[in-house]
Amino acid sequence: MVTIEDYGTYETAWCPGCGNFSILKAVKQALVATQLKPNQCLFVSGIGQAAKAPHYLNANVFNGLHGRSLPVATGAKLANPDLVVIVESGDGCHYGEGGNHFLAAIRRNIDVTMLVHNNQIYGLTKGQASPTTDEAIITKTQPEGVLSAPFNPIAVAVAMQAGFVARGFSGMIDHLSDLIQQGMAHQGFALIDVLQNCVSFNKVNTFAWYKKRCYPLPPEYDPTDWGTAMTTATEWGAKIPVGIIYRNARPPFGQRLNRGRLVGQKTDRSEIGRIMDRFQ
């Protein structure tokens, strides 16, 4: 029986009131609900305040470079498909520095769960615009307001027909925990973009701002309908939908490659001999 205590409690480097605390809680709840042992899980993260999250629970951890968590997770999952791989980082790390890897991971449909702490701002470097910051928002490094249009990760993922696309909100912990469980259970790539507040650097998209706008998709919503999902993915403003926005059953990369576990696989000397003979 795995309990929440198995995942430990740690002192964090986060500001009081940060949305990260709720996301961490939802992650632990999901792990306990699925009865995964800490040594069965691998958390891969990048750089930023969100990327520190895996240090605050018991699991295998690869805290790598800024933006590069998806390639690391891809390699680890292919080497040992028995690992449950969760990729956890912020909007800047995943959508800015790691944008190309985001597209490639969707195309591969690698069987990992990508958890994005999306607070629409850079926290660790103190308040610069992130790829998801809304247009015209003023920051110290964008004093004339953000000129670029915000990146819509949900719309991009749905447009590319990613396997599992969901949005959560750190203010709805149980709902979020359920999304994480479903994302982990999904066979293939799962994106869970989690809206969260940054108490120190985002004075526009506050907890109250999100709370007022986020609404759960109704039970009759059909996430397998791609056309509806595209419309839902672009809904942003007065109302913001949360829940599973799109999903399909495309077999994951590892299953199609069908190599099994590389780890522990013996090298066959006679096979190498046969390969060498072809050079004669």
């Binding site: 891969v44 690869f62 390639p71 999952k77 292919l78 080497a79 597209l103 190599r259 590389l262």
Partner: peptide, 24 residues
């Protein structure tokens, strides 16, 4: 073996490190 054409060289080395970390 797994031979994977990565999306760029940055991905290639990070994939290799992920695979190596996991034991390949």
């Amino acid at each position: 073996l797994i031979v994977e054409q990565a999306e760029d060289e940055i991905a290639a080395i990070n994939m290799a490190l992920g695979a190596s970390f996991a034991g390949a």
